[in-house]
C-alpha cells in the first residue's frame, strides 16, 4: 500500500515507524467528479472543477472588482488595475508597442496560470498547471501562433531570425543551426518549466506532510512544510510571470525578427 511512490529510504522509515505513508503523486490524479472510473474526453473531472474555479476567480478579480468603475479605486479594483497595468506594461516593454493587440492573449494566459497556481496551493486542491498536458497545450499555442504571426507579418523574411547578420559570415550557418534548434526547443522548455515547478513543489510538500506523522520529526516537518509553502507562493507567481514574459519575448521575435 505504502510502496507506491517513494524511495528506499522512505521504505525503511515506513518499516521502522509502521505508519509512514507517502503518496506524493496522488494529488495529481484526475478523477471524475460524479462517479464512474473512466475519464473520457468530456467527463466532468476535478480538472473541470479547478479550471472553473480559476475562471470564477478571474471573473471575481477582473469583472466584479471593477463593477463600480470608481475613479478612486477600492482595494479589489486596485488589484485588477495592477494586474492589467503589470501585463500591459510587460507586453509593451518586452514585445514592443505594436504587440499591444496581442495583450488580451498574454493576459489570458497569465491570469489563468496565476489563478490556477494559487488555487493549487489550497489544501486538498488539484493543481491544473502541474500537468504537462495543460502547459504543453499552452506552450504549443504560443509557439504556433508566434510562428504564424511571424510568417504572416514578414513572409519569408521571418527566417532572418535564424540568420544573424551581426555575426561573421562563416559563423552564420552554425549559429543558424543553433538558433533553429533553440527555436524548436522553446515550447518544450516553456511547458516543462511551469509544470515541473508546480509538480515538484507540491510533491515535496506532500513528502514532508508524510513525515509529519512521525512524532519525533513532526515539528521539523511542519516547519519545512511552512517554509516550502512560502516558497511555493513565490514560485506560483514567478512561474506565471515567467510564462507570460517568455510569451512576450517570443512575440517580439515574431514582430521584429531582425536582430
Amino acid at each position: 500500500m505504502a510502496d507506491d511512490a517513494h524511495g528506499a529510504a522512505a521504505a525503511e522509515h515506513a518499516a521502522e515507524e509502521g505508519g509512514l505513508v507517502f503518496h506524493p503523486m496522488d494529488q495529481f490524479i484526475v478523477k471524475p467528479l460524479f462517479g464512474g472510473d473512466t475519464v473520457g474526453l468530456f467527463t466532468v473531472t476535478n480538472v473541470t472543477l479547478w479550471m472553473a474555479l480559476a475562471v470564477l476567480a478571474i471573473f471575481a478579480l477582473l469583472v466584479m472588482a471593477t463593477s463600480k468603475r470608481a475613479i478612486v479605486p477600492g482595494r479589489s479594483q486596485s488589484i485588477a488595475e495592477l494586474a492589467y497595468g503589470f501585463i500591459y506594461k510587460m507586453v509593451e516593454d518586452v514585445a514592443g508597442k505594436d504587440a499591444t493587440p496581442y495583450f488580451p492573449y498574454v493576459m489570458t494566459l497569465f491570469m489563468f496560470i496565476v489563478c490556477s497556481n494559487f488555487l493549487g496551493l489550497l489544501p486538498m486542491s488539484f493543481t491544473t498547471t502541474s500537468h504537462i498536458a495543460v502547459t504543453a497545450i499552452m506552450a504549443m499555442a504560443v509557439f504556433l501562433s508566434v510562428t504564424i504571426i511571424g510568417f504572416a507579418k514578414h513572409g519569408i523574411g521571418f527566417l532572418s531570425l535564424f540568420w544573424i547578420s551581426a555575426a561573421p559570415l562563416p559563423l552564420r550557418p552554425i549559429l543558424a543551426l543553433i538558433e533553429i534548434i533553440s527555436y524548436f526547443v522553446r515550447p518544450i522548455s516553456h511547458s516543462i518549466r511551469l509544470a515541473g515547478n508546480m509538480m515538484a513543489g507540491h510533491a515535496v510538500i506532500k513528502v514532508f506532510a508524510g513525515f509529519a506523522a512521525v512524532t519525533l520529526i513532526a515539528p521539523v516537518s511542519v516547519l519545512a512544510i511552512t517554509a516550502i509553502y512560502a516558497l511555493e507562493v513565490l514560485v506560483s507567481f514567478i512561474q506565471a510571470y515567467v510564462f507570460a514574459i517568455l510569451t512576450c519575448v517570443y512575440l517580439k521575435d515574431a514582430l521584429h525578427p531582425h536582430h
Partner: peptide, 10 residues
Amino acid sequence: NQIFWLIVTL
C-alpha cells in the same frame, strides 16, 4: 480530458 477542458477554460 485535460486538453478539452483547458481549451474550454481558455
